[in-house]
Amino acid sequence: MHIKTKRLRFLLILSLFLSISIILVACISDFREDRIIQVVSRDSSSGTRKGLEQALYGEEKVSLPKGDSYEVVASEAAVISSVRSNPQAIGYEGLGFINTNYRGVNKLSVDGVLPDEDSLRDNSYKLSRPLSVVYRLDKINANRAAKAFLDFINSKDGSDIVKQQKYVVDDTLREPYQYVPDLSGAIKIAGSTTVEPLIQRLAVAFKDIQPNINMDNIHATGSGASISAMQDNTHDFGMYSAEISDSLIEEMQSGDGDYIVEKSTIALDAIVIIVHATNYISNISVEQLKHLYSSNSGLTFNNWKELINYGG
């Protein structure tokens, strides 16, 4: 009798918890218009965020509105997983990333234009940004290997690899890469997490042609790192995933000594607005996005209905 009640007690507790958890998991709902908008954004050092802000607001400095539902995450993947798990969410992401990770999220068209290679090429998609590398002229002239890698990026061979990754690049005037005999040395690169996979692929192809090059040091931490890489003269290249303005070049040139920083664009990328798979909205306007991602206008949307109704 005693043992039986003990077992019963265990079973009771177990079944109680199982049923509670099943009920809780089962009641997760789909997208609903009358609920709050969960706005997912990247941290301030992200190139993607800078790219979006440049595309939406130009040079105007903006800050995220403060609200219960404004989420700031540290990586592209975190944006995806946040949006994928949240029916009320909206986020943004690089096109190159979204092409391989589109499960569970919907791409929105912006002002009626869907982001793809064609709309990027003819500039009809509004939210685009260049992916580029920056380098110090004095350092690159001193390092033959780095110079050769830069030539490779700007060659026909380089742009072929970029195209394979579904990025857009204009290569009509490019020449094939010229093999440099007896080339050896190390190349150190730091910067954007968005550009890094692309650079990794370029590096692998480059090492096939020039086998004596050491390219083990590619650190991806965020576009902001390329600024300090230029200022402190620690790396040959900095990767940057947003438009590089003249003032930014000046900031990069503010390190010790006199030197010149130049940029070289690798590819063109689109910033895609994504929502949860159960969300039935298919289009969003630039105006709506402007109010969503900045507190400057003072207009806030309390739920999805208000956003949909805004501007027709």
Partner: peptide
């Protein structure tokens, strides 16, 4: 700290 210590500069 973790969100931006490695990424930021200056």
């Amino acid at each position: 700290i973790a969100r931006s210590a490695r990424e930021e500069s200056g």
